[in-house]
């Protein structure tokens, strides 16, 4: 056991951690969609390709390295070349999810023991959720009184949770919490997965894409950084249309005018499929 239960931490199971919430998040409001940046070119680059030899004016940014002699900036990814101020970046077009502190993720409980849950968050390591991060720290600590023991009875294997990453480094399994706004167990709906680097595209600049998707399909959508998207609508027809639209966005993430094109496509498909 790598972790003792903190006996001091006597907390109440917080009832307002509603298990079945279907609220939309407004988190997307201030998101940036780098794909739409003016500075992001349409030029697709591959690992090893030289992005610039002008070392006086440019600095290697994300997705790039300097060659050994320090004379060239080289891409390490398949992506779109971006020149932002004097940085040369590569916006990746594929890749895996790496957990970062503060990320929201949709996870599936894959295992549990008395002191922790293992959660699959579509990252290279399983994440850990400890029981103390499943309940709100109550303002009223009732010392001495018997209260709920912290254990891993609350969730079962296969449960889906929306969680926040509270610690992540290269060596250890990331740790999660489900205490917070919009966090907790998800019920109903369906989860789909896309390439994590394309998540910003599904949200769109200031949430423009996701708002459009919601309004045209009447579905609830919850997108998290690990590439998982939770969807719930009133009809399977609409859900399927939304899923197809999301896969279209994933596929065409590196193209211009995407929001307009997806909107037009959705309108056409709705008509074709007789969706009001």
């Amino acid at each position: 056991m790598e972790e003792e239960i903190d006996e001091e931490l006597e907390e109440e199971i917080d009832e307002d951690l509603d298990e079945d919430f279907e609220e939309d998040t407004d988190d997307e409001e201030d998101t940036d969609d780098e794909f739409e940046d003016e500075e992001t070119s349409r030029e697709i680059v591959a690992p090893g390709e030289v992005l610039s030899e002008d070392m006086e004016n440019f600095i290697p940014g994300r997705g790039t390295i300097l060659n050994k002699k320090g004379t060239k900036i080289i891409s390490v990814l398949v992506g779109l070349k971006q020149i932002k101020k004097n940085y040369i970046n590569v916006i990746p077009l594929n890749g895996f999810y790496t957990a970062r502190t503060g990320d929201k993720v949709i996870g599936i409980i894959t295992d549990k023991n008395p002191v922790k849950y293992r959660v699959d968050i579509n990252a290279k390591y399983n994440a850990i959720l400890k029981p103390r991060n499943t309940v709100k720290r109550s303002k009223m600590r009732r010392r001495g009184k018997s209260s709920h023991n912290l254990n891993t009875e609350r969730f079962d294997i296969g449960d889906v949770i929306v969680a926040k990453v509270i610690s992540a480094d290269r060596l250890n399994n990331p740790e999660l919490t489900i205490v917070g706004k919009y966090l907790g167990k998800k019920m109903g709906g369906i989860i789909i997965s896309i390439d994590p680097p394309k998540v910003p595209r599904v949200i769109g600049r200031n949430g423009s894409m996701i708002k459009m998707l919601k309004s045209l399909t009447d579905c609830n959508i919850f997108v998290t950084q690990n590439g998982r998207i939770w969807i719930k609508g009133d009809k399977i027809k609409k859900e399927r249309l939304l899923i197809e639209a999301i896969y279209k966005i994933e596929r065409e993430a590196h193209t211009r005018g995407l929001t307009d094109r997806v909107e037009e496509w959705l309108q056409n498909e709705k008509e074709k499929r007789g969706i009001k």
Binding site: A46, P47, I65, I74, V76, V78, N94, G95
Partner: peptide, 11 residues
């Protein structure tokens, strides 16, 4: 490997 998005010094 490149298709998987694994960072690479080159092909």
């Amino acid at each position: 490997l490149a298709d998987a998005g694994v960072p690479m010094r080159s092909l």
